[in-house]
Design a protein around this nucleic acid. Structure first.
Lengths: 149, 149
DNA sequence: CAATATACCATAGCATGCTATGCAATAGCG
DNA sequence: CGCTATTGCATAGCATGCTATGGTATATTG
């Protein structure tokens, strides 16, 4: 009849996400980045010049969320938007020079934070944990994961 | 040199938290509750009449976050606040009748969502996953988890 | 006791997530 | 071609997280 937060997978995940976000933010702030901005940049570092639509799909957030994040990134001179050559509705999101410069440092910082998360587990279990986390996320993302929808 | 989101524990946790939050919200909305409100209520169902301070500590959010959440819950008639008998700075947070009535239904809904999260894993691995998640969160919560702080 | 330090809350301002809307451009169809 | 549907974004409004700040009450200390 009670609800045990310490055994609720989602609640624990939310807490992990909060702690991780805070730590990542702490490491990225000196570079002038937030965690959400970093994720967008990590996509653009892999492939510059994507549309907002593509970024939204790849990062799995809603379109409106991405629009807001991109607006802040443009304000902060991390990206530039230019007209799409073939589709006047769309825009190309391009890295600024500043964002290109930040790449190595930011990726290092994020890698360290990801490593530090896993340090809570013995090395032998880390791969398994990532695998299980990945499978759970995939299962929840899949259609039909929502009963009676 | 790249950042692989699919292998970053924190990013996966954030995504799990988002998906979980959305699903929990979907199940709680018919009851007039949000996920954050549910967590506060789950504390109060266990022990009614706590102070804001206690709730903040137990749920692990910042004091300001709790103040805002409690304000919305008071607005929504889920809680009532009354003066603390011994300390005029503090207030007692008490369940409303409506909140007491919601208990069984809300706990059931949350339990189902938690169960559905774990369905992404074979039954044999579920306990281990919860254990690992719990250990990671504990390790990150612990002081000294932050290098060079 | 008076002054200072702490503790408990509230508020302001921001980021990032969401849903709901609306506009403009493009695609599809009769 | 012209109408409708779809697609790509932007904006509004909200919840929930945060930090920073300030007010009031209580505790501590010289």
């Amino acid at each position: 009849m009670n609800f045990d937060r310490t055994r609720a997978a989602g609640v624990l995940a939310a807490e992990l996400a909060r702690l991780y976000g805070a730590e990542l933010q702490r490491r990225l702030v000196p570079l002038g980045l937030s965690a959400a901005q970093f994720l967008v940049l990590s996509e653009l570092w892999a492939e510059d010049g994507q549309t907002q639509r593509q970024l939204t799909a790849r990062l799995g957030v809603e379109q409106a969320t991405m629009a807001n994040t991109l607006a802040r990134m443009e304000r902060d001179r991390l990206i530039e938007r230019m007209p799409h050559p073939d589709d006047r509705r769309a825009q190309i999101v391009a890295l600024s020079d500043a964002a290109r410069t930040l790449r190595a440092e930011a990726v290092d910082a994020a890698a360290e934070v990801n490593q530090s998360v896993l340090e809570g587990l013995p090395a032998a279990e880390r791969e398994l944990f990532l695998s299980m986390l990945g499978r759970i996320v995939n299962a929840m993302r899949a259609p039909g994961a929502n009963p009676q929808t």
